[in-house]
Amino acid sequence: MLGDEFAGVLSSDDFSVYADVEVGVLQKCLAHLRRHFKKVLQMGHGNNIIVASAFLDLIDQAFRQHRKWRQHPEELDYHTWARDFKVSVAVLLNTWQGHVGYAAGLLLRSLREKAHQWWYFLDHPSIPPDNNLAERSVLLGCD
């Protein structure tokens, strides 16, 4: 569907099929990431609760800040927040990597190894942090 030379930003969930798609940039959907952390939270054991809660708070903050930017595009404020947000993510990853259960560990590894895909919107706020519009467009095209 994208052709051989798609150079745009592909907004997608984190389904593994997208790993081999050659695109200019991939922005993974934070709504899907949020769902994954909610599942980890519901597992309810060990450090998973602490880590999942912390990441759910950060993801919710990211959605609020991005919505605020869309309503009032203040570049400096947004980029200052984004810089601080990246620090918060790095601190959480460094603190908890290796100290959580299997499911949370997979998410933390993905956040570390594919940060450029999860957090692309932080440096490019014109790109939404989720793929909701893309999913709605596909669903509307199926009618």
Rank of each mutant, 00 (worst) to 15 (best):
Y120W: 12
A52V: 01
S126E: 15
W69H: 06
K68S: 15
A82Q: 05
K38C: 08
D130C: 04
H72C: 15
Q117R: 14
K28D: 04
H66W: 12
L2K: 05
I49G: 01
R136V: 04
Q65G: 05
N132H: 01
F121C: 03
S53H: 06
W81E: 10
H32C: 09
H124I: 11
F37S: 03
L76K: 07
G101C: 04
D60I: 00
H45F: 04
D77T: 12
T80V: 10
A115C: 04
S88A: 15
E75T: 07
A31P: 09
A52E: 07
K68F: 07
H79E: 09
H32R: 02
L10H: 04
D20I: 01
L26Y: 12
N131H: 11
W81R: 01
W81K: 01
Y102K: 08
S11Y: 05
F6G: 02
V25M: 01
A54F: 06
Q117F: 11
D4F: 08
L111Y: 02
M1K: 06
R64K: 14
S126A: 14
L10F: 00
V100G: 08
L106Y: 15
C29F: 00
E5L: 14
A115Y: 03
V51M: 02
L107R: 05
K39D: 03
G44P: 07
V21C: 02
L10S: 00
I59N: 07
H124P: 09
A19C: 09
D84T: 11
R112E: 08
A104N: 10
K68N: 12
T95C: 06
A90D: 14
S88I: 14
G141E: 10
A115S: 07
R34M: 07
H32E: 03
A115K: 04
C142F: 11
D57K: 13
D57G: 14
D123N: 03
Q61V: 08
L33T: 00
S110L: 14
W118G: 01
A31N: 14
L76Q: 15
I127F: 11
M1T: 13
D20P: 05
D4G: 14
A82V: 13
Y78T: 03
R112N: 07
V51L: 05
P125T: 11
A103P: 15
L2V: 08
G3T: 00
W96F: 07
G24V: 01
C29W: 04
D20T: 04
V91I: 14
G44L: 10
L107Q: 08
Y78C: 05
V21D: 09
D4Y: 10
F55L: 07
V23K: 03
L92T: 09
L93M: 06
R83I: 07
F121M: 09
W119D: 00
H72A: 15
M1S: 09
L2G: 13
Q117K: 13
E22Q: 14
A52Q: 01
